[in-house]
């Protein structure tokens, strides 16, 4: 995965709170291989039931502004695949589902936290339309619908998004430590190994 530092694109507002992973991608689509692309599954049922859904009207949106607890629910990384394959690069919300956030960062999608007030200001500014959005990962700033903001992002995740790091490579450098740890753990606590 390649990293990124800046986005210049278009933002839309998804006015709901608690957009859970079952809404982001209904379970019935999750047996598809990733190579087929997950973009059409994004918020599938909501988009199919409402032709005027914001993501139907603005299919080239890059940035999503939404309310609290976005991505709550299951650990399905497919929810992030759906967003990424649709073309979303950053989501701004007051809070995110815990596992969703890590999944997002692992796939180059920025989960940026703003206060509830900031989010409400942006939602009012964007309304039912879309708006210019630029996001800078390096200094944690954004300009959305004419509003300049700085957002909250864990520095570890910022580095990961910028560098596009792959953890497996990173961890492999510590193989020796891991092997030693395993041996010491099971020597001291033999019960921790599965019996039989």
């Amino acid at each position: 995965m390649s990293g990124w530092t800046k986005i210049d694109g278009r933002a839309v507002a998804l006015r709901q709170s608690n957009v859970d992973t079952d809404q982001l991608i209904p379970a019935r689509f999750m047996s598809a291989p990733r190579s087929e692309g997950y973009g059409s599954f994004l918020l599938h049922d909501a988009r199919q039931e409402d032709a005027a859904h914001v993501l139907n009207r603005f299919a080239s949106a890059d940035v999503l502004i939404t309310r609290r607890n976005f991505g709550s629910g299951s650990s399905r990384e497919a929810a992030v695949y759906a967003l990424v394959d649709f073309g979303i690069k950053a989501v701004f919300a007051p809070s995110f589902g815990d596992i969703f956030q890590s999944n997002a960062v692992n796939n180059g999608l920025l989960p940026a936290r703003l206060s509830e007030d900031q989010i409400e200001t942006l939602i009012d500014a964007i309304g039912e339309g879309d708006a210019d959005a630029s996001v800078d990962l390096i200094d944690g700033s954004a300009m959305i619908g004419g509003h300049a903001l700085s957002f909250d992002l864990d520095p570890v995740w910022q580095q990961k998004l910028v560098n596009g790091w792959d953890d497996i490579d990173l961890t492999s450098q510590h193989n020796e430590k891991i092997t030693k740890f395993r041996a010491a753990r099971f020597a001291a606590h033999p019960w921790a190994l599965p019996a039989t």
Binding site: E77, N103, N106, N107, T171, I178
Partner: peptide, 20 residues
């Protein structure tokens, strides 16, 4: 605790996980 697919792959490959 639950993890996503990228992390599952990491655990399969290393039997470890990075966590804050």
């Amino acid at each position: 605790f639950g993890v996503g697919a990228t992390e599952v792959a990491h655990i399969l490959a290393t039997q470890t996980i990075w966590q804050k």
